[in-house]
Design a protein around this nucleic acid. Sequence first.
DNA 1: CAGAAAGTGGCACTGAGTGTAAAATTCGAG
DNA 2: CTCGAATTTTACACTCAGTGCCACTTTCTG
Lengths: 200, 200
Amino acid sequence: MSVRETNKQRTRHALANAAVDLFTQRGYDAVTMADVAESAGVSRRTAFRYFASKDDLLMEYPLSWLPLFDEAVERHGDLPLPDRLRAASHAIAAHIEVDPEPVKRAMAIALSQPALAARYAAVARQWIDRIATEIAGEPPESPEEAVRTRVLASAVMGMIDTTLELWAAGDEPMSPLLDVGFDLLDGAFTQARQSKVELR
Amino acid sequence: MSVRETNKQRTRHALANAAVDLFTQRGYDAVTMADVAESAGVSRRTAFRYFASKDDLLMEYPLSWLPLFDEAVERHGDLPLPDRLRAASHAIAAHIEVDPEPVKRAMAIALSQPALAARYAAVARQWIDRIATEIAGEPPESPEEAVRTRVLASAVMGMIDTTLELWAAGDEPMSPLLDVGFDLLDGAFTQARQSKVELR
DNA sequence: CAGAAAGTGGCACTGAGTGTAAAATTCGAG
DNA sequence: CTCGAATTTTACACTCAGTGCCACTTTCTG
């Protein structure tokens, strides 16, 4: 990796870390972008070049999981849909639990601020679209089909979302919680398949 | 109603209407709070007293539906859960379709701006919590129960959400679309009940 | 009608976010 | 290694959202 890329990555991490630290110490509102920038040893303007907004500083994790999800889904392409989603989720869980603390801290901050929770919800929506794509296989042809796939995707996301929240607030490992959720969903998937929802 | 209340309500509507008009004409970003205030014949400061933030100007509708939902759910308290939710949704649909145009315009603006979509998602989350409460009857006692109810609530909300989007983008009435969604969900509910999820 | 209560307007301030142009750093070619 | 090109950082200035404060006006109550 070139010097430039290395530096950029270091700066990016420095900013995200400084942000989580400062937010945890003083609270989100009491920390300005200038504070974060200074703490990371960089100018305010540069901080904004790395993170387009203050709350983006806390979206590092959920956004970085999206490609992991895609990759894992790809890797388990031979499994039936529900198992594929389950496997992908476990892959992300494993990745998170290598170093879960910063994730938990970031989530604690995000969930305490309505504005940030909104941002999280928006990211979740991206996830829903991704999952819906995975469920449908291709773009829906009728409104009914669109509703059906999005309903399933929302259910999956709602489960993941709740699981993440419970996990972040507690001390248990994530995988068993995930399995509880997926076990429940499996039933719904079966039902959906019987209702002629197309599953790959 | 007292003069004071009447005036407040008029101002509130003037602001919300001016906002939707201006946003539609020039786009959300190109309109400042000062523009909206002026157009509604009120000072900037006062505008912020009615709407705590610029994007709140577009959350009038979804937020106003929450009490309707509660009320309708209450009114149909004798129906089993799925039918209760369905009836409440139809009640809201009926209310919306009295004058659907402003709702559609507001939604079109909101969905075109990522920041606003996030705000919408946050409102949806409030809905999910409300629905989850309705599903569970009382606060969950175990993590597993929390996951189960939130999954169902997310599914319901995902359905409603998608239905709203489809409806706002098209010309069909909302009720048939809603029924497609609820028919699909009924299956999921049945399944859930068999898995020992407590339903009132 | 007078005084209290509620609402409005004006002003000044903080902080997020952005355009721009000059200065600094990194890169690639010879 | 060195020079010029490309990329990145910085400083500065600006707009606008959002808030605290206080004087002013409107509405309510007795």
